[in-house]
Design a protein around this nucleic acid. Structure first.
Lengths: 231, 231, 231, 231
DNA sequence: GATGAATGAGCATTCATTCAT
DNA sequence: GATGAATGAATGCTCATTCAT
């Protein structure tokens, strides 16, 4: 079932084969359910070699996380080139993101599902990468405000929350796209741009959605300062 | 260390104690790392009793998923009462959602993290619940369009994608709120309403964000039919 | 090969069976070469039960050491009753010692050979027991001096060294007796009494063997203050 | 961390480096806990070379035992030169023995601790060396008797037992000296001479310690034919 | 209703040993 | 002469699960 058994490869090559097998197995079975036996077999090597090169299951998983995280962030960074206006950066970054997650579903599963569910150590690894992305998106939001010559006038935490929401929405769409045949990366990106960007635009323009005073309030509410869109 | 050891309880009560212990253990350790020993001890009963009542680890986990899913959906449903306008329904549903996930972090971890990562069976269970919620949100979006007397003129899948994005953003915010001390349910809900609702409003009004023809395109793009918001 | 397979025994009984099997296996194979599989089989139980009761290989070995050390020291203590004169105490203590080591060769191997060779932890355990015995012998030597109304006039360390030598000789004789068919405990004890006690008597009487000034010295040497015994 | 990595050494030199590393590793870790990896690394060579030269772990250990046994017996033999009177021979032999064991603690550990605890083969190897030493000491005892113009009138086995006891005492003192800082070889040797030699002298003179008829005997006992020393 | 006693099966890890170069 | 690459075979340990009472 595994790769064709080729003997005597240089270490670097074997390591990549092992990581390939590990990402696939971890992505599909989960960290704990994946056995080193299965990984070794899929990689076409014996178990001791896996330990010789990757040290332990934990280290192997960490190596997977790091490799996949690096690949993902580099893909996104390569997509969102700094020269463009903020919305174009976001668009192309998202497209790169959805393209990458679609092409590497196991790697995405490792990052998004498995790494967060199997121990603080791995979760911390992921949290760091994710924080980086959220920070990047936060910068894009603020840049967009500047480009529109508007003062967002939003507290730090509010902007963070928006970025969190945007990233979370992207993650959910990536899962959804991977599970729904026929959805392209461009479509996912367009959906998210439509969903998020206009909302952000309104926010930048000072049009908030104001919550009612309390849960039983029946009074006036809605978008302030706007023209009464939606509800 | 678990519940006070009380003998001879009626079955229904014992079962709830076991489920409490199981949700807590599964939520914190994960499905595979949680041992039946630990759960039984935390529940204050012997292991055979757990098997007598809940049959197997798999069944026990399924029971946890079902109980927590039911509790969550009921909380949300109780929040979003049908009489209100769509945005108010969404607002109060979200508030109920964030309140519940904050109050039952282990249950939320079971649903959002663990159930999706440990086998098709559990993932399917979750997918069903989630689909129900996405459908509900989809209806809200369409209702909002109707209330605004506008034809969304959006393909079915596009609206589904929007709902997916909204739900995904909500999930991410729930995680974020649970991990960030001081964030209230109302704040999370407000952030999400601001983020999403205006964007949806624009969409309903026919103002899309149009993607460039391709990645290297330098031509005109942006929100069509609008007043040039944001970028 | 193991004990007759009897089902459902109370824990205390099973534990002793396991310790019996472990002492035998550790004594014959050594700590590292002994496998938990072998011990479990010899005890007539499954491996998990060994772990359930004894926790780990290390703990099992420690339990063996403690049990055997206790049995040995109690046997010696029971032999050397305090009321007797010092030489009689030593005689009966030694007899008890050789009797016990002959009857429990595996236990003796665990204590004398295995425990000292497999890690600081075990060695420390043994060292404590041994120190106790050496201290006991030291007291006997001093008591003998008092009984003979003589001032040993020996430095603390010198007496300790003598006690160490006596205990070491006893240990070697125990090994030798176990390996040489037909040697009884009484014979071993008599040999050691003859070997050691008179020498101690001379020492107490102030008759030392004086070392030459240096290795190449050809001058006078021998037992001082005595009648020129031996050489 | 091991020897400086020098390429292309003649075989004999390499082998000694390997044996050095092996003795150190076996002495400190024990036979089983020592890994060929560690030994090879400490020797500064690759593992296959160790196998090329020394064949197997067992052979390597045997080679260690032989080399260290030879070194020890040669050191002792060089110390105890045949021309001297018996007590001087014993004294200088013991001094050489304690000097050597103090200078080569790992070698001593291999011989005294490890080789006896890891399988019949190694134990037999050691037993042979030890028998040689015991025989040598036996000869010394008999020589001493002749020198004193006395007929030991002791059965063969009794003398062997005495020699065993003396050798065992020496071994215990070697361990004790290695574990107790500040004890010199001369001190150890003097302690043992004092302990043993006078006792032997008494024995030669026909003064035995006579065991009581049985353990509950309260009758007369003690050194017969002597002046009532000690007891 | 409840549990102490017990296990089959599996898993991460290690080690002595050998090729192919 | 010397080594990087590779593995078969154990071994300690854990876990879900089940009897017998």
């Amino acid at each position: 079932m595994g790769a064709v058994k080729t003997k005597r490869m240089p270490r670097a090559v074997r390591e990549q084969q092992m990581l390939d097998a590990a990402v696939r197995t971890f992505g599909q079975r989960g960290y704990m359910a994946a056995s080193m036996d299965e990984i070794a077999e899929l990689a076409g090597v014996s178990k001791p070699l896996v330990y010789l090169y990757l040290n332990s299951k934990e280290d192997l998983f960490t190596a997977c996380i790091r490799r996949e995280a690096k690949a993902l962030t580099e893909a996104v960074r390569a997509g969102a080139r700094p020269g463009l206006p903020a919305d174009r950066q976001l668009w192309s970054g998202l497209t790169a993101f959805f393209t990458h997650t679609a092409r590497h579903p196991d790697g995405w599963a490792v990052l998004h599902l498995q790494a967060r569910t199997h121990g603080e150590v791995f979760a911390a690894e992921i949290a760091a990468v994710r924080a980086e992305i959220v920070a990047f998106v936060t910068q894009l939001i603020l840049a967009a405000a500047r480009e529109a010559h508007r003062d967002p006038d939003l507290p730090e935490r509010e902007v963070s929350g928006l970025a969190e929401a945007l990233v979370g929405a992207a993650e959910a769409l990536a899962d959804w796209a991977n599970a729904t045949p026929g959805v392209t990366a461009r479509q996912s990106a367009a959906t998210l741009m439509n969903f998020a960007w206009a909302g952000l635009g309104d926010l930048m323009a000072g049009r908030h959605w104001t919550p009612p005073d309390d849960d039983t309030d029946g009074g006036i509410h809605g978008i302030h300062g706007g023209t009464g869109q939606v509800g």
